[in-house]
């Protein structure tokens, strides 16, 4: 469904050049849940921003459902974007609109459907995320978990073939995480939606994924089923999935030696 080949992205120029993504290859298959995991700064959000056509890669290509995304013109981009839904980390609901209008927005803008049909569809989508009856609330009146579920309802409003999830369980309580996880699995299995989940919640990724891609410093260090990842011998993977502070992944972001840096400090 989605093929990504040799994706490379750098930010900045000259000395400050930072490689955020290096030779990223992946194949997201139809009806499967693929999780991209990694620590903060590992480049996982950058992958997502490439997939939704916000960032332009330095090199490499992305093919979504047969359409090349990189360097596509406006019409192609619109056509590709109608094929996927995305659930943002913050939900990104429109605060000035009610829940109903939020979910109905893509339907009103992209289809010729009758207003009554749209209202019924909104109710169906809200039922799917278990929030039927919340139609007339404003996003400000909802809890974090509810906002994410409404965001999911909006993401699936147009019955997309692909749904991207940006940190679906970040900042939620364990029960809400469980609810969201179940929704992701249900949607992808029953509606054959291709799901791409970007997360750092290892237990949740292990539970729901068919395939896990682990990123570290912009490179793929592991890819495989949750079983394979769990049984991996790579100490970096073990450190990440066990969440231990000591290991090959340093706690400090600095590349320089601590003592050297202190000695070299200059006060002007």
């Amino acid at each position: 469904m989605i093929k990504v080949n040799h994706l490379r992205k750098t930010f900045g120029e000259g000395d400050k050049k930072l490689i955020v993504l290096d030779d990223f290859n992946a194949h997201f298959e139809s009806g499967q849940i693929t999780s991209i995991i990694g620590g903060s700064g590992s480049g996982k959000s950058t992958v997502l921003k490439h997939l939704i056509g916000v960032y332009k890669p330095d090199s490499g290509d992305i093919i979504i459902d047969g359409d090349p995304l990189v360097n596509s013109n406006r019409e192609t981009l619109v056509r590709i974007r109608k094929k996927f839904g995305i659930m943002f980390q913050s939900g990104a609901l429109f605060n000035s609109l009610t829940v109903e209008d939020n979910v109905a927005l893509p339907l009103r803008e992209h289809t010729e459907l009758n207003e009554n049909t749209i209202k019924i569809m909104v109710k169906m989508k809200l039922e799917m995320v278990g929030l039927r009856g919340a139609e007339h609330l404003k996003p400000a009146q909802l809890s974090g978990g509810m906002i994410k579920r409404i965001a999911l309802a909006r993401a699936i409003a147009l019955d997309p073939k692909i749904v991207f999830y940006d940190e679906p369980s970040a900042g939620l309580d364990p029960i809400s995480i469980g609810v969201i996880d179940k929704l992701i699995v249900d949607l992808s299995k029953k509606m054959r939606i291709t799901s791409v989940v970007v997360t750092h919640e290892i237990p949740s990724a292990m539970r729901i994924s068919d395939k896990i891609i682990m990123l570290y410093k912009g490179k793929i260090i592991a890819a495989g089923s949750p079983e394979e990842i769990r049984n991996s011998e790579d100490p970096r993977i073990q450190q990440f999935i066990n969440g231990s502070p000591d290991g090959p992944i340093p706690f400090s972001k600095s590349q320089k030696d601590y003592g050297e840096e202190l000695k070299e400090m200059r006060f002007s």
């Binding site: 339907l107 289809t111 049909t117 749209i118 019924i120 569809m121 169906m124 989508k125 019955d159």
Partner: peptide, 11 residues
């Protein structure tokens, strides 16, 4: 059939 189809039948 997609959800719009079902919604139409619900109507």
């Amino acid at each position: 059939i997609d959800s719009s189809g079902i919604a139409t039948l619900v109507e």
